[in-house]
């Protein structure tokens, strides 16, 4: 769910660019620091980014209706590579989507990075870590993180649209927020549930067949021999 170029006023576009760039800068700093120490980090991020982008393009069937929907993938990326690095990956994916599908945009990049990248990553990551601390299994914690991350992205986007509604005097931001949330709810709620399901199931599967990857990425503690 991206905000298309043209929806936001110049003022809000700039505001979101400013806010998002703080987080992106932290992400770039983290990536650069780590890439200096670990030469493999850049190719690894390139491949992880390609995999998450691919995953976000996969249609997931929605029950009963027979339609399908796409996961946003950000909570997953945050679990895999950490919240700030995942923000950098979201910039990459939003740029590519704007280019390939004319989906999203350039002036709204800041707003979209803020909702999908920053909020999606941070919420997904924090929920995942909290879940693990509370003793949930890997699959369950990742599932809840996927669901919560998706809902958080959706709320942030609605808020951004509501705030950015140009020149609406009568309509309060709160009302506009409700209008946009209401518009998105029927599509976003099932999507968030699906995102949670596949994120959880996917990590569970990786833990089963290739736990070494999760040890290397620091997602699972390597058991003592």
């Amino acid at each position: 769910m991206h905000i298309q170029d043209g929806f936001l006023t110049g003022q809000w576009a700039v505001t979101w660019f400013g806010t998002a760039s703080v987080f992106v800068a932290k992400g770039i700093y983290d990536v650069t620091k780590k890439a200096e120490k670990i030469l493999m980090f850049k190719p690894l991020l390139g491949l992880v980014s390609a995999a998450v982008f691919f995953i976000s393009l996969l249609p997931i069937p929605v029950p009963i209706t027979g339609t399908s929907s796409h996961p946003c993938g950000t909570p997953l990326a945050a679990i895999l590579v950490g919240p700030f690095v995942s923000i950098v990956l979201s910039v990459v994916s939003l740029l590519l989507q704007a280019l390939f599908f004319a989906h999203g945009g350039i002036t709204t990049l800041g707003a979209n990075v803020m909702s999908e990248g920053v909020i999606g990553s941070l919420v997904g990551y924090v929920i995942f870590r909290l879940g693990r601390k509370m003793g949930f299994s890997l699959g369950i914690a990742a599932g809840i993180a996927g669901f919560a991350g998706d809902i958080a992205v959706y709320c942030t986007t609605s808020l951004e649209l509501a705030l950015g509604m140009p020149g609406v005097h009568n309509l309060t931001a709160a009302k506009a927020f409700l209008a946009f949330s209401g518009l998105y709810l029927p599509t976003q709620l099932p999507l968030a549930i699906l995102e949670g399901l596949v994120t959880g199931a996917m990590l569970k599967y990786i833990a089963k067949v290739r736990p070494d990857i999760l040890y290397n990425l620091g997602i699972l503690e390597k058991p003592e021999k």
Partner: peptide, 17 residues
């Protein structure tokens, strides 16, 4: 279908890694 698609996602990720 959902189970298959999560397996597919996991396998693509493993290949990528």
């Amino acid at each position: 279908s959902v189970k298959s698609i999560s397996t597919l996602m996991a396998m693509v990720f493993i290949r990528a890694y």
